[in-house]
Design a binder for these strands. Structure first.
Lengths: 115, 115
DNA sequence: GCTACATTCAACCACATGGTTAACAGTAAC
DNA sequence: GTTACTGTTAACCATGTGGTTGAATGTAGC
C-alpha cells in the first residue's frame, strides 16, 4: 500500500531472514543483555554479532543503550507488528481452506477455468 | 526444498523481504495467474519476475503448474504459517506491554517511536 | 518440420550480505 | 596518562541478490 510501509516491511523481514538474528531476538526478549552476553553463545566474532545487531537495530527490532562501558540490548517487540499484520491478511486463505480446495482441483485433472 | 525449521524460516522471511515478491503474493492470493499475468504490472523483465517466482517457489509460498503453454501460479498460503507462528511468540511482549514497561523502567529517555 | 508464443536459463553486472582480522574509540580503574 | 575491557568501524573476501539481454526450451497449431 504505502511505500514507506513497504520499506519498513523490507527491513523487518530481511532482519528476520537470518537464523542468528532470530535467535538473538529470542535471547533478548526474555531479558536485556549486553552485547557481549548476546554474542557469547555464537561461534562467530563479536564484530559479526555487532553487525547483526546493526541489522536488527535499523529494522528497529532492538535498541542499544549505553550503561557504563556496556551496551544494553533491548527488544522492541512492538515493531514486529507490521510483519505480523501483513501475514495475518493471509489467514483467511488457509482458514477457509481455499488452499486445500485448490490442491484438490489441481491434483485431479479438474481444470477450473480461470475466468 | 527446505530442511530444518530454521532454514525454512530463513527462506520464508527472505522471500518476504522484497516488496515485489510480497506484491506478487497478494496478486496470486486473489486468483491464480499465469506468469505473464503476474509479470505485467511490474516494470521489469519477465526474466526478473521469473526469478522472483523461483524465490517464492523455493520457499514453497507458491507453486507453478503447467497448463498448455502457460504456467499457472498458485498461492500456497499455509506455508506462511511457520512465519506467522514464529512472530506470534512475540505477541506476549507487546500485548502485555512488557515492552513499554521495560522502556519505562530502564529509560530516563522516554523514546517513543519516531518512525 | 516450421512458426509463434510463453517461460526459463545462461551470462553478465553492480551492489549487498555475512563473515574474517585488525585498528579504533568509549569507559572505568589505577 | 596508561592499562584493561567493551564494543564499533574499516578493509577485505567469497558468495548471494536483483536486475539486464539474449539464447534456449517447451507447447500449440499449421
Amino acid at each position: 500500500m504505502v511505500n514507506s510501509n513497504a520499506a519498513r516491511l523490507d527491513s523487518i523481514f530481511h532482519a528476520l531472514s537470518d537464523a542468528t538474528r532470530r535467535s538473538i531476538l529470542r535471547d533478548v526478549a526474555v531479558k536485556d543483555k549486553t552485547v557481549g552476553e548476546v554474542a557469547r553463545p555464537y561461534r562467530m566474532s563479536l564484530a559479526a554479532v555487532s553487525k547483526h545487531l546493526n541489522v536488527l537495530e535499523s529494522a528497529e527490532l532492538i535498541a542499544r543503550r549505553r550503561r557504563g562501558s556496556f551496551q544494553i540490548v533491548r527488544l522492541k517487540a512492538r515493531n514486529l507488528r507490521p510483519a505480523e499484520q501483513w501475514l495475518a491478511w493471509y489467514d483467511k486463505f488457509w482458514n477457509r481452506q481455499l488452499d486445500a480446495l485448490q490442491t484438490y482441483l489441481e491434483g485431479d485433472e479438474h481444470e477450473h477455468n480461470d475466468g
